[in-house]
Design a protein around this nucleic acid. Sequence first.
RNA 1: GGAGAGUUGGCCGAGUAGGUUGAAGGCGCUCGCCUGCUAAGCGAGUAUACGGGCAUAACCUGUAUCGAGGGUUCGAAUCCCUCACUCUCCGCCA
Length: 422
Amino acid sequence: MLEMKFVRNNPQVVQAALAKRGSSVTLDEFLKLEEQRREKLFMVEQMKNRRNTVSEEIGKLKKAGQKAPDMVLEMRELSREIKEKDEEVKALEERLQVILLDIPNIPHESVPIGTSETDNPVMRIWGEPCGFGFQPKPHWDLGEALDIIDFERGGKVTGARFVFYKGLGARLERAVFNFMLDLHTTEHHYEEIFPPFIVNRDSMVGTGQLPKFAEDMFKIEGSDYYLIPTAEVPVTNLYRNEILDGEKLPILHCAYSACFRAEAGAAGRDTRGLIRLHQFNKVELVKFCRPEESYTELEKLTQNAERVLQLLGLPYRVILLCTGDMGFSSAKTYDIEVWLPSYQAYKEISSCSNFEDFQARRASIRFRNAKGKVELAHTLNGSGLAVGRTVAAILENYQEADGTVTIPEVLRPYMGGLDRIG
RNA sequence: GGAGAGUUGGCCGAGUAGGUUGAAGGCGCUCGCCUGCUAAGCGAGUAUACGGGCAUAACCUGUAUCGAGGGUUCGAAUCCCUCACUCUCCGCCA
């Protein structure tokens, strides 16, 4: 969410940012209502001031044993008017809030202007897609042949886009996220969090999933609770409505969680395999920092995520999302894409974003700076990494001609020393 | 799920027969004084949001906020209702 005052005073800046993202929303209504709000607020506050003054006087008179029926009568009428005006102001504020919550973040100046993913520049490429001396299989075929992933029964027991991992498949999934957590906590100094996988509505609004993207979420019927689409939600909301000690910044957290997504708009896309499931595992990196350091922290966070792929020996590239392809809450986003032989393409495995103060304002996450003044923190997060997609990439990139899969060396301690599946 | 007790500022903790209480007192913190060092002592300051004045600064000023939302009243931290959360006991369960 942008600041009401900022939008009021810089409508052309906001309008230009919206245009860059390809949005045609106008601010006319907002500006009109905002002016009305301030007018009415000023009026009602003056009325309240009078009520406070007179009420105090009545109190004094009463204490002195006197009565003031005419004053009481006048105040009764005034209070009635205040109530009316208060409701008008409240209605305006609610409407303004709805508009504000719907305005996406302003892209950082370093973000290239573009309309779709074809406009995303490639920042760097690591490793090389390896050639196979045989016809490589997609991971869903490997998973079934090795009897380590069961897609069919996932469909039977739950439904489309749910899977069972079994045996060494389950072990591999667990090995991958344990490896990621260990790497981030020990080498990158993130503090581990194990969050709730269910959050309330306020948390979903805080990180920007609601109110705009309700159809992407699983809501728990008969309650105000939602299944988390990413650990970003509970972990960022850890400090909602808090004022942090500036000395403690930056705060670095990493968290494993299952993630639940309705994938409402994804019909027909990535229907096979582990790439797009309603439930998947992910290790998330989250940072809270001072505004002046958030962009260097974004670079570091992205590198921390890349490190996982480097250690696993999986070829990847990093792209910078253009204005038209960026998420609603983000000011700047790098996507890390891993090479998937089955797609003959790089496929997103991590998304690292700086939200600046956009989430912090929604969630009221602030800190006290060196001068003792309260400032909004900047929040960042990135996948470090999506576990299922990592497993898919390992199976495909490490497959052998005989249908077995070599286990990357760094994972072997997590696999009981095993060096091969199959 | 049943019964009871709570929820006040960075923290602890007063305050409920409604009336200068944004809120005593203490701790912590900041600045100044004092002081061989440390400790102690003295003085001052120390919430946030949104308006108005104003340069979107400093500062001045208004309004709101004592878990959240409603209600009663000229006036509510204090009375009433609903909800959330915490604690204790019982039940249930991993």
